[in-house]
Design a protein around this nucleic acid. Structure first.
Lengths: 225, 225
DNA sequence: AGTGGTGCGAGAATAGCATTCTCGTGAATT
DNA sequence: AATTCACGAGAATGCTATTCTCGCACCACT
């Protein structure tokens, strides 16, 4: 996607203005169409995932469902993984918003953190009532194949937690010498991973950790006293 | 495999003793051969992994390397995932031993825990100097497809950490109300996952957590005071 | 209206892998 | 000697992702 919008930046000043505008007009239209198509792919994939309860769909399914073509798909996405990444980022962004909203309901910094952590825990849990959570079930896959991109996808959440943590620090709630950003990352990952580790298919549910336990553990990790 | 050894269990007591022994003899020989073959597959896979630095090998590669046949492979393994699982379990068992040995060098319970956690952290790190650590890089895959088995594979480590944690508790080093086993699980997973999250390919190394940081975080999570 | 370019649908072709199946052979058992 | 068994060799199958090839419809410009 990036290649097509690359050239203009350099030669723009050498070309006659009318030509620029003409190009821009058709370019804009093209971009619009492209966006719509991408949207359709995204929506179709999302629909399949939530209804099928799995991220194991084939590209063909997405294509059929979106009433477009394979050709088009590969014209707009570098591959299946880009589609997944896009969906993933989106889900995380939405989750971050949701958590932000929930946290805002609390007045105490520590309470905000607690609410945020516990909600994140629930969202990351491999739930039977699947919707967004499904995303966390292929997160591992992505972590393997595209760790850098996953980091980027995590950034909205990391930002959010860093903010909350910084507020806690400002309120003097953290232990001396605490680094808000590091603690935010640590807490976030601890919560997310431990949530995911819970949901096996066997009967060994006795070891499954609860949101409270994890929060307890984490909060001791950064709280004053 | 299960079908062929099914009948004996029932009629065994009705058969003459000599026959039983005869059967047992040939059975034992067969088992021996089978074990050797399995070993060869395992060794070959291990070799490929460490030399190639990835767990993305094909079954064919393993077969070729072990100088056996596909047929044989599928006769001894239910599929590729069983091979991986076997390797995984093995690696974790060895790691557990290694950690146990390292921890034993310390006299204070908390020090033992610290050494254990930090070593575990290093072992789980996506290292360039790859050997056993590589196993942790496909752990996520397995976690997705065979969570129950992964739990089993983790058990040696969990046992180890639970012991260390219990010792700490006995020494009064844990905060009141602490549940050693839960804390052990929590600590273990926190260390492992955070170690893995570190190694991206991009330049964002500034956020990478260190063993000390993680230990610091965890220990605050369970220590008294 | 005609014409060349472009985007795109349809779907065939290719390729990588796991898994299965078939055949033939040599060794062990009877 | 006949039968059975385990196994190697490798062809066959099945599933996907990804690429490629055609041909059509739409658009700007003449």
């Amino acid at each position: 996607m990036a290649q097509k919008t690359d050239p203009p930046a350099n030669k723009m000043s050498e070309e006659p203005a009318w030509k620029q505008r003409a190009i821009e007009r058709s370019t804009k239209a093209a971009k619009l169409r492209a966006e719509q198509r991408v949207e359709r792919f995204l929506d179709a994939a999302q629909a399949i995932i939530t209804e099928k309860g799995t991220t194991d769909f084939t590209v063909q399914e997405v294509v059929d469902r979106s009433r477009q073509s394979l050709r088009s798909f590969y014209q707009h996405f570098d591959g299946k993984h880009e589609l997944l990444l896009a969906l993933f980022e989106d889900a995380l962004r939405r989750s971050a918003d949701q958590i932000h909203a929930a946290a805002a309901g609390q007045s105490e910094p520590m309470e905000r953190l607690r609410v945020a952590a516990q909600l994140l825990f629930e969202l990351c849990r491999p739930d039977p009532a699947a919707q967004r959570p499904l995303f966390t079930d292929f997160a591992p896959q992505l972590l393997l194949s595209h760790p850098a991109e996953v980091k980027v996808a995590h950034s909205p959440l990391l930002t959010l937690f860093t903010e909350l943590m910084t507020q806690a620090e400002a309120a003097g709630e953290l232990h001396p010498g605490a680094k808000p950003r590091r603690l935010a990352a640590l807490t976030m990952q601890t919560v997310m991973f431990n949530a995911q580790a819970g949901g096996g298919a066997d009967g060994d549910e006795a070891h499954t950790l609860t949101a409270e336990e994890v929060w307890d553990f984490c909060s001791r990790g950064f709280a004053r006293r």
